[in-house]
Write a protein that binds this DNA or RNA. Structure first.
Length: 319
DNA sequence: GCGTCCAGGTCTACC
DNA sequence: GGTAGACCTGGACGC
């Protein structure tokens, strides 16, 4: 448990439309930064590491979707210099999609038979970035070859046993472990502790590479062209095409067996007996239809499956 | 109750 | 440059 006794506050003016509730607590149940975060009305308490520094974060929403304002307070252990505070604010701006303009995507989506429903249902939902590269890697690797339920269990276990608890503003929030913590674990023991199977090896290898400290941060990958960022991510152990699409700050079109079934149905209006065999086909079709907006399309569809099933009169399997 | 199958993939070994 | 086969585990399914 780490008590975070220092703090500073700041204000973020988001690019409208910005629906805070939908953005920080996605309808499909995806977390903002960690599953341990706390929500009350228009306030969220969460925790993350920025360059191995544990930060507790309280975000309060003021205003409306069309005139959005976020008051943030960052809690930390030792005092931060003005440069560190400024850099943190910039990083958070990126992670919360504060400056992202939804206009071009909404224009495309409005003319699309599938997407036009989603942008009404989820008006103002912004894409957010993962809390960190390693955090995103844990997510991607735990999702591999496992039913979602088991993936969730593995992640909860990692967070519980190896995460760091931030205490601030009367709350306790667990942040993902830093690479250094996982890098020194024995693969067999780690695997057994959280029933990770073959994933334990990937996680420890990934942790070692990232702990070495010369791999670019998510913020740095965000400045690269999307295809370069993806190529770089695939160099990492345990990270292939699918996981790179999950991790990349540019987004991708991360088609796996589940999403192949869902998007296969949306695109071709039929069921496929073996979804694994149509992964490539579905991926191509999505990118053909939606191009550079394919991630936003994926994101909006995945968070609106329940409504979309009704709008389109077809059964779509929920996550 | 008990075997079999396979999941929100990646890597290696072999052509 | 392309593709079987192995890899952990446990819940779902068929018998």
């Amino acid at each position: 448990l780490v008590k975070l006794t220092n703090s500073f506050s700041f204000t973020l003016q988001a690019k409208p439309p910005y629906n805070f509730a939908l953005t920080v607590q996605k309808p499909a149940g995806w977390n903002l930064f960690t599953s341990s975060e706390v929500f009350e009305d228009s306030v969220v308490w969460t925790a993350l590491h920025i360059r191995d520094l544990l930060i507790g974060l309280k975000l309060r929403f003021k205003g409306t979707t069309n005139s959005p304002k976020i008051i943030g307070t960052a809690y930390h252990k030792s005092s931060l210099g003005p440069d560190q505070k400024d850099s943190f604010k910039q990083t958070l701006t990126l992670k919360l999609g504060i400056n992202d303009d939804l206009g071009e995507f909404y224009a495309l989506a409005g003319k699309d038979k599938i997407l036009r429903h989603t942008i009404i249902d989820l008006y103002g939902m912004h894409d957010t970035q993962n809390s960190g590269l390693f955090d995103a890697g844990i997510l991607a690797i735990c999702l591999q070859m496992a039913p979602l339920k088991r993936s969730t269990k593995m992640m909860e276990c990692i967070l519980e046993k190896y995460g760091e608890v931030a205490e601030f503003d009367g709350k306790e929030v667990k942040a993902w472990p830093v690479p250094k913590t996982i890098a020194r674990l024995q693969i067999a023991k780690f695997s057994k502790a959280c029933n990770l199977g073959f994933r334990a090896k990937y996680l420890v290898q990934l942790a070692k590479v990232l702990a070495a400290g010369n791999f670019p941060l998510l913020e740095e990958l965000a400045r690269l062209p999307p295809e370069d960022a993806k190529e770089k991510l695939i160099e990492l152990p345990g990270i292939g095409d699918y996981s790179a699409d999950i991790i990349s700050p540019h987004g991708g079109f991360p088609i796996d067996v589940w999403s192949a079934e869902v998007f296969g149905k949306l695109f071709f209006r039929r069921d496929f007996k073996n979804a694994r065999e149509v992964v490539e086909k579905v991926k191509e079709e999505g990118i053909r239809r939606w191009g550079k907006w394919s991630w936003m399309a994926f994101f909006y569809v995945a968070n609106d499956l329940k409504n979309l099933s009704k709008h389109l009169g077809m059964k779509l399997r929920l996550a």
